[in-house]
């Protein structure tokens, strides 16, 4: 992985419509973004299509990067995650691929993943561990599967308002833990 400054310089280059900088940005970051999109969409063909659309968005919106206050990889991964979630929700809305998406193995990290965790990841995992298991799972599903309050309420078989209260409390606890 390249340094934060390198990626930032390349995003700035893309903002100036510098194609060479954009090609380099793709070279340095596409494997990470493709990994993220594949993990969310669980379909190679769809992930490839999504990745193209994501980099077109990156090209078009590169001049907005500085306004958000994100670190460069977070900005790129967030665009990729949001785009993949949009696709996933559209797929769920059309009813296609619903069953396969739900039958795939759970995405919870195994012990090896924990051992290799970066400090950021270790921090959020520690804070997740302080939440009741099902609450942590709900937050994780909202982020990684793009599940909505209605879907989470159905999954955990609680009324929607209960789900909302659960999740909000969990988010607040997470934030307090992360700010420690």
């Amino acid at each position: 992985m390249s340094t934060r400054e390198e990626i930032e310089t390349l995003i700035d280059g893309a903002a100036r419509k510098d194609r060479a900088a954009f090609a380099q940005l793709y070279g340095h970051t596409s494997a990470k973004l493709f990994g993220v999109v594949l993990r969310i969409l669980k379909s190679e063909a769809e992930a490839e299509e999504a990745l193209q659309e994501i980099y077109i968005k990156v090209w078009r919106n590169a001049d907005r990067y500085r306004a958000g206050g994100y670190s460069p990889m977070t900005w790129l991964i967030t665009i990729a995650r949001n785009h993949a979630i949009d696709r996933l929700r559209a797929r769920r809305a059309s009813g296609a691929g619903l069953d396969e998406a739900h039958e795939l193995p759970d995405a919870a990290p195994g012990p090896e993943a924990l051992a290799m965790a970066s400090s950021d990841r270790a921090r959020i995992l520690t804070c997740f561990e302080r939440l009741p298991l099902d609450r942590a799972e709900a937050v994780r599903r909202a982020y990684i599967e793009g599940e909505t309050y209605a879907e989470l309420a159905s999954r955990f078989d609680v009324p929607l308002n209960t789900m909302r209260t659960w999740l909000r409390r969990s988010l607040l606890k997470l934030k307090e833990c992360l700010s420690e």
Binding site: S30, A31, F34, G35, Q52, T74, I77, R81, S118
Partner: peptide
């Protein structure tokens, strides 16, 4: 800040080099 926190969940997701056709399409 939340975006940074949540992105940490993806830190250990493996990188996968996309096929060359993806860049050609872009």
């Amino acid at each position: 800040a939340w975006a940074e926190d949540f992105v940490a969940m993806t830190d250990d997701w493996p990188e996968v080099v996309p096929p060359a056709a993806v860049w050609a399409g872009i």
